[in-house]
Design a protein around this nucleic acid. Structure first.
Length: 340
DNA sequence: TCCACCCACAGACGGCGAAG
DNA sequence: CTTCGCCGTCTGTGGGTGGA
């Protein structure tokens, strides 16, 4: 049986990471959605939802697939780029974790609705748009989804029952207010897009710049895991912070160091070796080596998960100027959900 | 326990143009 | 022609979550 695959021109265009948000009239700004990147190929008979790795997920998100087919039946075949996100009953966007329960299931589960936020249009009918500048593709996207769904809550409400599974992603030609909302509401970040750039399918392009709003703070090292493969000295640092009288486990930091740093860390940790976990409660980490908590490291991370663990933590460096006993959680993980 | 999904970073690798 | 450095890409390491 011939396996259906996504044409390479329609593979998702990727953004480069930028510490500075590019400014100027040649850019447009969009929220960095916290969900799953999807390319949707749709005609009046069916919608296919392609992940970045080329897996097809329409069976897992039937309400989204159905909504897309409903639109395509009226307006013709289309290829859309967007993000699949989970929303609560009021239509507000939830975090990535809320979507994960749906990724493997073969049928939709009642709890948590999924919505496809479309932010690019790669083809309409038999016309391919990937060579067109972003401005043209955006115009085509807005025309195609006209009257269906907007980014505002009011538009989403008015949209119920018609094509509630699809929304038009918002875009702004100025960064300021979007950046303010991003900070206030705890978004992952913003994406800046060059308005004159074509769609570079399957490529990481400078025309899209990913600006993450990241958190960083110090943690105490209470242990480490063993290295695997070609890795030397250690796998990941097990870190935590003081909370009342106890040292709370905050997760494992396994990237951000080069070989010399790994060697240096191993040398500093060796004399601190001890048999029991300094963390309370003791985390379930396989093959952990525990150490007396005295080393302080700075860590950059995306967010604190609901379970109190660091998500996407990256080692920044040692903090010789801080005492281990002084390390507490600086900012409560106030990041909860963002409104759509 | 494994896997799929989301990631980041280091190091290796290959293409390219300039320098030797 | 060979070597060097730059740049982008690819691979392999690491992270978290939740379902099968």
């Amino acid at each position: 049986m011939a396996r259906v695959t996504l044409p390479s021109a329609f593979r998702p265009m990727l953004a480069t990471a930028g510490t500075e948000l590019p400014r100027g009239t040649g850019w447009t700004y969009e929220p960095k959605w916290d969900g799953m990147r999807i390319i949707a190929t749709v005609d009046k008979r069916r919608a296919r939802l392609w992940t970045r790795n080329g897996n097809e997920k329409s069976a897992q998100f039937p309400e989204v697939a159905d909504a897309l087919v409903t639109i395509a039946a009226e307006r013709g075949p289309v290829v859309l780029d967007g993000e699949l996100i989970a929303v609560d009953s009021g239509g507000a966007a939830l975090r990535f974790g809320a979507l994960q329960g749906r990724i493997h299931a073969t049928r939709g589960v009642p709890e948590g609705r999924a919505v496809f936020v479309a932010f690019d249009c790669l083809a309409v009918g038999d016309e391919t748009l990937v060579r067109e500048p972003w401005m043209e593709r955006r115009a085509a996207l807005e025309e195609y989804l006209d009257g269906l769904a907007g980014g505002s809550a009011a538009a989403a409400r008015g949209n119920k029952g018609r094509a509630a599974g699809v929304r038009l992603g918002e875009t702004s030609r100025t960064a300021g207010r979007l950046l303010q909302r991003a900070r206030a509401q705890g978004w992952e970040g913003l994406i800046a897009k060059d308005i004159d750039a074509p769609y570079h399918g399957g490529a990481r392009s400078n025309a899209w710049v990913k600006h993450k709003l990241e958190a960083r703070q110090e943690f105490v090292v209470g242990g480490f895991t063993a290295p695997e493969g070609g890795r030397t000295h250690l796998g990941a640092l097990l870190v935590g912070y003081h909370d009342g009288g106890a040292l709370r486990f905050a997760g494992a930091v396994g990237t951000g160091f080069d070989r010399a740093t790994l060697a240096d860390l191993a040398r500093r940790l060796a004399p601190l070796n001890r048999r029991t976990s300094p963390f309370e409660p003791k985390p379930a980490v396989r093959g952990a080596t525990w150490v007396t908590p005295s080393l302080v490291v700075e860590v950059r991370y995306n967010e604190m998960t609901d379970a109190g663990k660091l998500r996407q933590p990256v080692f920044i460096g040692l903090r010789d100027d801080k005492r281990a006993a002084e390390v507490t959680l600086e900012t409560q993980p106030a990041r909860r959900r963002r409104s759509a």
